[in-house]
Amino acid sequence: MTGSSDKTTTNDKALPGAMLLGIDTARGGRIVTWLLVLICILLAAVEFVWPLHGYFEIEDQPVFYGWFGILVCIALAIFARIIGAILKRREDYYGSLSVSAEEHPAFDLAQEKADA
């Protein structure tokens, strides 16, 4: 995992979400990925045991939804990169006429009791 911190401090252990600690480490990522591989294999296997029915011929291809999903993901990732290369600008591109570059005003944040 890029840029994630592998350190778990004792401080974090007391946090409410401590149960999941480590999921964002490289090791956690690997575990999740292998789990998903397992699930995918199981789901693909189902298809060969109990044949599925769809609306179109193409759905009769083996594991159509699996490879279609992956293909679309690849295509989208590439497409998004192209779009990004063309259309990405500085955050303050529109200057003060846009909220992109400004901070969210403090009165609207974390105020549970105070008047706006």
Binding site: M1, A26, G29, R30, V32, T33, L36, V37, I39, C40, L43, A44, E47, L52, G54, E59, V63, F64, Y65, G66, W67, F68, G69, I70, V72, C73, I74, A77
Partner: peptide, 18 residues
């Protein structure tokens, strides 16, 4: 098939993130 779609996309995502 819907589970397949979600699972494979999730796998692709996890792989790409890695």
């Amino acid at each position: 098939v819907q589970l397949q779609l979600v699972a494979f996309v999730a796998l692709a995502f996890a792989w790409a993130v890695g």
